[in-house]
């Protein structure tokens, strides 16, 4: 059992959980993820490691409540335990070959770029950061990013905060003004696809983090496979990060919807508190 030591609400449907998992904390690196199960009948669901504290033995994940499991988590309290918590899985982010980097986080993708922002700052090459959300309430980690980013750009779809528009609008402006050698974008797949369309034209290398549907997370089931440059790759062991320009986005987006009917059914059950 893995105790939840601390919970913090960051947005109306997003909470941050600090979970006691010392072995995971000890081995975690930015860009890796964990898979958890809430209880004995739970599904295995993946979340990015957003932060970790080797001394306290904790791992922090950011969870957006979108379906059965994440809504179930929304009802847990500090002191409650998760049945299973395994990781760190996947390969760590490797941006060592780049100097001028833009990090882009859309929605819950913020969870993935935050540890990167911190690490790049530590390495003395703080990145420009673009954070986009549907509205003001959904903007997360603003203060944290301010501290870690070279420059922070915020945008909201509805214009309720700072500026109205999409992350790609900001990105286009930045690419016109400044020179970058790498873009690291994480968010919903359609957003990552849109970013890749922009950067491909501009000829800037782009790394994305694939949130494919997973089961084991160890390369055993093949469920998380994505086509990268025409090759079959497994997001859980070869990724989750890949060269965004090589991804077959239409396939990846449609695969994410494989179980949508079942998910909708479970979501209803979660809504009823079953």
């Amino acid at each position: 059992m893995y105790e939840i030591l601390k919970i913090r609400r960051l947005a109306p449907n997003v909470r941050e959980y600090a979970v006691y998992a010392p072995e995971v904390a000890k081995h975690a690196k930015a860009g890796q993820f964990i898979i958890l199960r809430v209880d004995e009948n739970g599904e295995r669901v993946p979340f990015t490691i957003c932060d970790y504290d080797k001394n306290a033995g904790t791992v922090t994940v950011l969870v957006q409540e979108v379906g059965y499991t994440t809504m179930l988590m929304g009802r847990l309290n500090e002191g409650d335990c998760l049945k299973d918590f395994v990781g760190p899985l996947g390969k760590p982010t490797d941006l060592s070959g780049y100097k001028n980097i833009v990090l882009i986080g859309g929605g819950i993708g913020t969870a993935v770029i935050y540890p990167q922002a911190k690490q790049l700052k530590r390495e003395g090459k703080a990145a420009d950061v673009i954070v986009g959300a549907r509205n003001k309430e959904l903007i997360m980690y603003e203060a944290e990013f301010k501290a870690a980013a070279r420059e922070l750009y915020l945008t909201t779809d509805d214009g309720s905060y700072v500026r109205k528009g999409f992350v790609t609008d900001v990105l286009k402006e930045l690419l016109d003004k400044k020179h970058y050698d790498c873009v690291f974008a994480v968010g919903p797949m359609p957003m990552m696809k849109a970013v890749c369309n922009v950067t491909k034209e501009a000829g800037v290398h782009t790394v994305v983090s694939m949130n494919s549907i997973m089961v084991d997370g160890t390369g055993m089931c093949g469920g998380c496979r994505v086509s990268v440059g025409g090759q079959r790759k497994y997001a859980c062991v070869d990724g989750p990060e890949f060269d965004g320009h090589l991804i077959d986005w239409d396939e990846a987006i449609s695969r994410l919807g494989t179980y949508k009917e079942h998910e909708a059914e479970c979501r209803l059950r979660a809504g009823k508190g079953e």
Partner: peptide, 26 residues
């Protein structure tokens, strides 16, 4: 021996194409 062998034919990425490992594990 965990790593599933796939077909390597066109259409393998379609929804509804799964490895026996994934199907049976689920």
């Amino acid at each position: 021996a965990g790593l599933p062998v796939f077909l390597g034919i066109e259409g393998e990425g379609l929804n509804g194409v799964v490895s026996a490992n994934e199907y049976l594990t689920r």
